[in-house]
Design a protein around this nucleic acid. Sequence first.
DNA 1: GTCCTTGCAAAGCTTTTGCATCGCT
DNA 2: AGCGATGCAAAAGCTTTGCAAGGAC
Lengths: 139, 139
Amino acid sequence: MSKQNEELKKAGLKATLPRIKIMEVLASTAIQEEAHFSAEDIYKELISNDEDIGLATIYRVLTQFEAAGMVTKHHFENSKAVYEINSDEHHDHMVDVDTGKVMEFHDEELEKLQHEIAKKKGYELVDHSMILHVRKIES
Amino acid sequence: MSKQNEELKKAGLKATLPRIKIMEVLASTAIQEEAHFSAEDIYKELISNDEDIGLATIYRVLTQFEAAGMVTKHHFENSKAVYEINSDEHHDHMVDVDTGKVMEFHDEELEKLQHEIAKKKGYELVDHSMILHVRKIES
DNA sequence: GTCCTTGCAAAGCTTTTGCATCGCT
DNA sequence: AGCGATGCAAAAGCTTTGCAAGGAC
């Protein structure tokens, strides 16, 4: 029984082939810039691997994964939503406006500040999304 | 000749009735929390004011306004995009995950911190988008 | 065997586009 | 008058849903 198998069970989901395959695609790259998949990205990837999985299933499964906290859904500026597998460690994104390169970073002070800002307004911070648009400093 | 009229001309857009009316709706509330309109919000508002303006026109006009830097388009987590009139002053957004209510805030320390984070990586901050997802604290 | 899951197709929603008409300058 | 702007309806995305068949436990 694989690790993914267990993770699915833990989320109350049956370990079906579509779900396992989708999970594999989401986890398939170590390259940060490529770690964001739209439903169709996953669909095409599976088709090209001769896995016969319907697009509707992918949408349903991604929704379940998101509810289970296994993936995060981003909207960015495009029309399509993209999904990213959740790692243990929280991070934010920095995008180079010239090259499109996506970098990740984590700053504890920033996290703390966000909690404080929410608290000051009478709210608790559930989550946040932040993207810094940056440009390389000429040297 | 109204102020809006001039602003439209400056953007290279003819001062037509639909554009003026849409601008008026966007500028119609002093309440920051309610300053986000979807295309349909604007459409309904105009219809209820007996202005006969097509939804397609609203989409076209909003796209033009965005290109001219007069409004900012946000996606938040919903399916609909919302538009906000650009004020001189920068602010970020906080969304109540239970009610969908959007609030605005500005925190100088946060802004400074973002610049520092970018700088530390050898970049200058061009822009940023940040949304805090929050929940009301039970009292 | 039971109940959850899947695939397909159809429907739903938001947004965009083609085209003839209209209106600002 | 000229050319951009509008309205309507149709089309185009992306995503969700109904339903019958299939699969996990």
